[in-house]
């Protein structure tokens, strides 16, 4: 058995603010093999984007990785910047959420796509630009309408996201991280971009780490998911299994609160409009996370032992060789869907 491509073991991201230190991401275990698709779901402040930035080595100055973060057998935590540059863009590439701000407004799209190949692979400008042309065709921006010397402001949001994807796949990375790649886009454009990503992953066999808050997107795009809350993974397993059971009350609550869940409940004529199942309260401040289950205060199933210790990510089921785990002392047993 080969080593997983990406392995996080007990990884934490630590933020130092003055004298105090706090873990933004705590004790994350994740594995990702070549060609696999893993989704990370969570709300803002759950640490999902920080996990991605940690893998990319793009954490803000005051943050530090603890624990193991290894890529292709090499521990990347604490790697000097010069060496990290050889991974970033070459072996691991990222698609950001905001195509408006992530592209350089004063460089042509051709130069931005070719940059990675010239830098990492030492290609000449001419070779790199030929490749950039081919990449633009690949992501559905054909010549002559979409020339290499266009600038980002001349493109629509969906077209810019296609350029971002072309940049990310330019050096044929082993791992593609997509952080909310379609959140800023309209649904029909979102569908086109997801189709494109799907195609590319199938063709190139790259691994995908998809970060999103949209339960629909993650369900359609991934094999496995990890649900994060307050810096920890609280449920993980095969996507179908997690959706079918939603053993952690937060996972269940998140689904019930989303309009997807509400749409399942039929409305009777003449009856009052059914309310959404909101989760009461707010996400705890990272500086004041409790020393017990961080969801206990918002959980409607909380029992006394929930306020005593942090629940470990326990095995609750195994499907094939994928484990379904949930960090809850009282995981829900009833299935939410067939």
């Amino acid at each position: 058995m080969t080593r997983p491509l990406l392995q996080l073991a007990g990884m934490s991201v630590e933020l130092s603010a003055g004298p105090s230190r706090v873990d933004i991401v705590s004790d994350v275990d994740l594995e990702l093999n070549r060609g696999e698709r893993l989704g990370i779901v969570g709300e803002s402040g759950s640490g999902k984007s920080m996990t991605a930035l940690a893998v990319m080595g793009l954490l803000p100055e005051r943050m530090r990785v603890r624990g193991e973060l290894s890529f292709d057998g090499r521990n990347l935590a604490g790697l000097p910047e010069a060496e990290y540059c050889r991974y970033r863009g070459r072996r691991v590439a990222m698609i950001f959420q905001e195509p408006m701000t992530a592209l350089n407004p004063v460089k042509s799209i051709g130069a931005q796509i070719a940059e990675g190949r010239r830098l990492h692979l030492g290609e000449t400008r001419a070779d790199a630009e030929t490749k950039a042309r081919a990449l633009l065709d690949r992501v559905g921006l054909p010549a002559p309408r979409f020339d290499l010397d266009l600038y980002p402001h001349q493109l629509s949001g969906g077209q810019r996201q296609r350029v971002m994807i072309a940049m990310a796949i330019a050096c044929e990375p082993d791992l593609l991280i997509a952080d909310e790649p379609t959140t800023a886009l309209d649904v029909t454009v979102q569908a086109q971009i997801l189709d494109l990503l799907d195609d590319l992953i199938e063709d190139t066999g790259t691994a995908l780490l998809l970060i999103t808050h949209d339960l629909g997107v993650v369900s359609e795009m991934t094999d496995r998911i990890a649900v994060m809350y307050a810096g920890r993974i609280i449920e993980t397993g095969r996507t179908d299994d997690v959706f079918a059971r939603m053993a952690h009350p937060y996972a269940r609550g998140l689904f019930a609160a989303s309009p997807h869940g509400a749409a399942l409940a039929r409305r009777q004529a003449g009856e009052a409009r059914p309310r959404l199942n909101a989760i009461p309260g707010i996400v705890p401040d990272p500086f004041a996370r409790p020393p017990y289950c961080s969801f206990a205060e918002r959980c409607s199933f909380a029992e006394p032992d929930c306020r005593r210790a942090i629940p470990p990510l326990d095995l609750i089921n195994t499907d094939g060789n994928v484990q379904h785990r949930a960090a809850c002392f009282h995981p829900r047993a009833r299935m939410v869907a067939p």
């Binding site: 969906g158 979102q190 189709d195 799907d198 795009m221």
Partner: peptide
Amino acid sequence: QALVAAVPKPFSGRRKRVRSDAPPQT
């Protein structure tokens, strides 16, 4: 119809793609 169909839904399993070579038009 296109708008409703484009919304990703949980429980629908992996997306069923309509592969088209024509550039998307807006």
